[in-house]
Amino acid sequence: MKRTCQMIIALCLPLVLCGAAMAQHSGPYVGAFIGGNALMDSEGSDNQGSFILKFDPALQGSAVAGWDFAPGDPVGEGRIELEYTRRSNRLDQVKFAEGGFKGDGDLTVDSLLLNFFGVFHNATPWSPYVGGGLGAARMDASGLKVTGQPLGTGTSVVFAYQFGTGVDFALTNHLSLDLGYRFFSSIKPKFTEANGQSFKMDYYNHSATLGLRFGF
């Protein structure tokens, strides 16, 4: 947690060091984000019934590469980008009909999404944006355990999507700080239980991110 705070402070330092910049970048850009995410309680289901998987919040990291459209561009004001994100949440508890039991292991998700964000430029350096993305996610449940026993194994590649909103703060003509929120979800991934039968689970993830984008 201390390290997280240090990183957030480091990311925010440019806000103090830089004056407000009004220029709006257009053209290619790259960026990196870090944030925290909360994976919502998930319903797992198989042919024996349903159970609940509760995960701990965790950090996540993203890298983006995209294109800023200039204000007045016929495509619209906003940006299009390719985003890679890794989320890994530790299984805290599994609830069955008998009650809750200690969980263990990580559910790791690597996603690659094509995002579209509309940006609301104004006379200040702050530019709110809203948008979403579509793509794929590779989910790895091979480490999940309950009461020390294997719960699920295998990986699943599924269609994924997200909705996002946030605000950009232009530090310079080329550098901007991004504070955002993302809701990430997917169709239900399918994993294999220890007894060989398969189960599916929900995946709904809320995250708050802080990142820097550098435009060329």
């Binding site: 919502m40 019934g49 069955f96 309950v146 026993q149 709904y204």
Partner: peptide, 15 residues
């Protein structure tokens, strides 16, 4: 976004 699953589990723990 909604929230997480809030139902009642029906599966028994045979793990």
């Amino acid at each position: 976004a909604g929230c997480g699953y809030n139902g009642t589990p029906t599966r028994h723990n045979d793990f």
